[in-house]
Simulated scan of single mutants.
Amino acid sequence: MIDTYWRCVALTPERITITNRKRRPSGRYFFVRRPSMLSLYDAAALRNALTLPLRVGLKSLLEKRIAQIFADGLEDLTHTIVLCPGDTEAALKAEILFSPLEREGRRWGDPGFETWWDWLHDHGGWFELIYCVGNSGFAFVLFVEDADSDGLADLLAMCRASGRGEGVGGGGD
């Protein structure tokens, strides 16, 4: 029998690995890499993100956006999420309590659905969506890697259909 999964996080300056550990019937362990979104929900997390060993394209996007967030004094009013292939809409919804694909009982692709982001931009390899919440200045900033992903197929289709341009405002609002 395979023992229960548990999460193992190995943090080293060279890499970050988030895995689930399983015990084989032989008693040896093996690791299965599980995708994990990057969730930056406060000033400390944003600062820490700049020290992570991220791919060059993503790191430069985050450096620019995080610098802007701090310059505008919004570091404690911004929740930034980085989604990569393997992440799922369900995991995103669990993290931020809404899905970009749903609005007022309608889902993207349904007749009458209107997108509702405040900003969508195609950075070439990454989509950036910004959702402002209320009048306090709070916003969710989502970076979605433009790479095939079963768990994010609808979100990518929506971004690809809408985001080929210099920056696109939201739907009907």
Rank of each mutant, 00 (worst) to 15 (best):
S149Q: 04
D173V: 11
I2L: 13
A94C: 08
F30K: 08
C84L: 14
T17Y: 06
G134S: 05
F143Y: 14
D173W: 11
G137I: 04
L83K: 07
R23V: 12
V133M: 11
M1N: 12
L50F: 02
K59S: 14
L74H: 01
R106Y: 01
W108I: 06
G124W: 10
G165A: 09
A153K: 12
C8A: 15
P35W: 03
I69S: 00
S60P: 02
I66V: 11
E63T: 11
G137A: 03
F70V: 01
D72K: 11
G73S: 02
G165H: 02
S60Y: 01
L142C: 05
P111D: 14
A43T: 05
L38D: 07
R47W: 00
N20L: 13
D72W: 07
K22S: 12
T4V: 13
S26D: 15
I66W: 02
E128M: 10
T17L: 13
G167Y: 07
P111R: 13
E95H: 08
D118I: 00
R28L: 13
C8N: 15
G172A: 14
S149L: 04
I130E: 09
D76Q: 14
E95P: 01
G112F: 05
A139F: 03
V9C: 13
D87P: 02
L101M: 04
Y131I: 05
R7G: 06
P35E: 06
E95M: 09
A153D: 08
G169D: 10
E145Q: 13
G112S: 04
W108R: 00
V56E: 15
A43W: 06
F98R: 01
G27D: 06
V9M: 11
L129A: 06
I66T: 01
G124R: 10
M1D: 12
L58F: 06
V168Q: 09
S36Q: 15
A153T: 07
D87C: 14
H123V: 11
R106G: 00
E145M: 10
V82P: 02
A10F: 10
D173M: 10
W6N: 14
M158P: 00
P25E: 11
H121W: 14
A71F: 07
R34C: 11
G27P: 03
L155R: 01
